[in-house]
Amino acid sequence: MSAPTAMNPVEPLLRSERMPHIWCPGCGIGTTVNCFARALERSKLPLDRVALVSGIGCTGRVAGYVHLDSFHTTHGRAIPFATGLKLARPEMTVVVYSGDGDLIAIGGNHFIHAARRNVDLKVICVNNFIYGMTGGQVAPTTPLGATATTAPYGAFERPFNLPFLAESSGAVYVARWTAYHVQHIAHAMAEALQKKGFCFIEILAPCPTLYQRRNRLGDGLETMRYYKQHSVIRNGASTRDLDLGFQSEITVGKFVDIERPTLQQTMEAAYRQALQQRYAGWRA
């Protein structure tokens, strides 16, 4: 850093001409993008060979702000789009960056199947417990008792425990952090970028405009303070024990880091075994 000019480390990743972004003051999504920029830098991956795929929603807008081959797809379908892209361009690193509503509600079926197949995707889920873009509706992650515009008397459905869902579906790397844990997020993202297979990182982030305000939890900064005070790092914890309640303690950490052949590896092995020399490989 002794160069005569200094640049924000996130800048090479940004489509700067599109700033300022649409995210609200105190929203945590931009913070996670900083972490992603640091992780990419550490990974030494050539940026021309990294694609980022988002669905719809506030986090879905990440694709529009990163200077990569970036795809803002349809609601819930980032993972199957990314699956097609990865199979057609195996040499690329394909990152899926989206929100909890997009990945887990409307896209839940694709999420579990991509994990089952072990598609080589890096799935980053910014979980703010709410539908932000559409104005604060209840999500499959909304803690019991929290209110939302479509749960005005409090959420009464049990929310998903995302790390448990990811692990039981077959993910090979599972971590959860909050937007407060910026160094850990960057580290986890860098690990995922280097790892083969379906990697899942959940990042709890404030939605001050819709979740925190409606639930009288203060602004983004107060939420970040809450994360700092109420998060407990338990690396290797059983994902069964990671349920989140309303303003409960938050267990964070890396929970799963295993090896399992990827979809492409199992596909190629099956073809090679059955067809031997007749297997033509992938003709791009």
Partner: peptide, 8 residues
């Protein structure tokens, strides 16, 4: 600060 700033 650079890591935290959501607005770059």
């Amino acid at each position: 600060c650079g890591l935290y700033c959501p607005d770059f």
